[in-house]
């Protein structure tokens, strides 16, 4: 076992409950997604694992040892990719990589070789001697990740590593995270509030909200939990709240919400609800109707009554 958290409780200022009997495990070589909205407790969990914060109670074990925050040997085996880009803007990418490599004990030829390898991996080899202040957001993010990979950690923790970057850079990062886990047998904890990312790369997923683990398992297992439901979206030209109330009151409708011009409806499996929905919404001029495949967003919605991104619920 690489990481094990058991019944962990963490409060801020003695009151705000950030982690509430939090249980979490990571095995060697697996990519574990930690999915939850902003403020759910993902970064707090990471800080507890890395040893940046003490916890109020519970057990935090890493590499089979109790995490007390002061064990430098344990720190040497972890690579932390911070949520914010933390590279020195006025030093070149090469100098940044050298610095973080040295910080983790690499020296001489080994350091140079690793800088070359990592530069290749993150796709910055041709612009290695430029300062990151000249980079795009995506390139900075890649350098930010590269700085955590130099020492070949056994556990890489990526805290929202793709926030604020273009889709092309995001895909690049996701591909090399998958490659990294496959080729080096590295355990990866990947936190995000982007469902599609977590769904694409994780062997297992923990869904977290308000400090609680609300579900865990493989993506398939989690989607199986809500498989019985029908998920229907209907776009209309002139939406209104009264229609939403009427839909919510229909027999077999479990949930209904309105998001701009789109009604999202969750109904019991097999229930003949579509005709009733179309009848209710026809006066609003229906533009499009979809029955879609369940994903982790639906799992989160079903379990919490909230959407991951905006916390809106009904």
């Amino acid at each position: 076992m690489i990481v094990k958290l058991k019944d962990v409780i963490k409060r801020y200022q003695g009151e705000l409950l950030a982690l509430d009997y939090f249980d979490f495990e990571v095995q060697k070589g697996e990519v574990v997604g930690l999915l939850g909205p902003n403020g759910a407790g993902k970064t707090t969990a990471i800080n507890a694992i890395v040893g940046l914060h003490d916890v109020d109670s519970g057990e935090v074990e890493i590499f089979g040892k109790r995490q007390n925050g002061s064990n430098l040997e344990v720190r040497r085996r972890i690579g932390l990719v911070t949520q914010d880009v933390t590279v020195y803007e006025h030093l070149s990418a090469y100098e940044n990589l050298l610095f973080f490599g040295k910080l983790y004990g690499l020296r001489g030829e080994t350091l140079k070789r690793r800088v070359d390898e990592v530069a290749e991996l993150i796709g910055l080899k041709n612009r290695l001697h430029e300062a990151p202040k000249k980079y795009s957001g995506g390139m900075k993010r890649r350098l930010n990740i590269g700085c955590a990979l130099l020492h070949q950690p056994e556990l890489i923790i990526m805290d929202e590593p793709t926030v604020g970057i273009d889709p092309q850079s995001r895909n690049y990062i996701l591909e090399f995270v998958k490659e990294l886990a496959k080729s080096q047998d590295t355990a990866i904890i990947y936190t995000s509030h982007y469902i599609e990312e977590v769904q694409a790369i994780s062997d297992r997923v923990y869904i977290i909200d308000q400090g609680h683990i609300i579900a865990k398992g493989t993506v398939e297992e989690l989607i199986d939990k809500i498989k019985g439901d029908q998920r229907i979206t209907i776009d209309v030209q002139s939406p209104n709240e009264e229609a939403l109330d009427e839909i919510a009151d229909l027999a077999d409708v479990k949930e209904a919400r309105l998001d701009a011009n789109t009604y999202h409806v969750v109904a019991h499996a097999g229930a003949p609800v579509l005709d009733a929905l179309l009848a209710k919404l026809a006066p609003l001029r229906i533009m499009n109707v979809q029955n879609h495949q369940a994903n982790l967003e639906d799992v989160f919605l079903t379990l919490t009554g909230k959407t991951l991104r905006d916390g809106g619920a009904r």
Partner: peptide
């Protein structure tokens, strides 16, 4: 006093 704090504190250096 910036986000560098976590990255540096996570490193194996006092």
């Amino acid at each position: 006093f910036t986000p560098f704090k976590d990255r540096l504190r996570a490193a194996p250096v006092r």
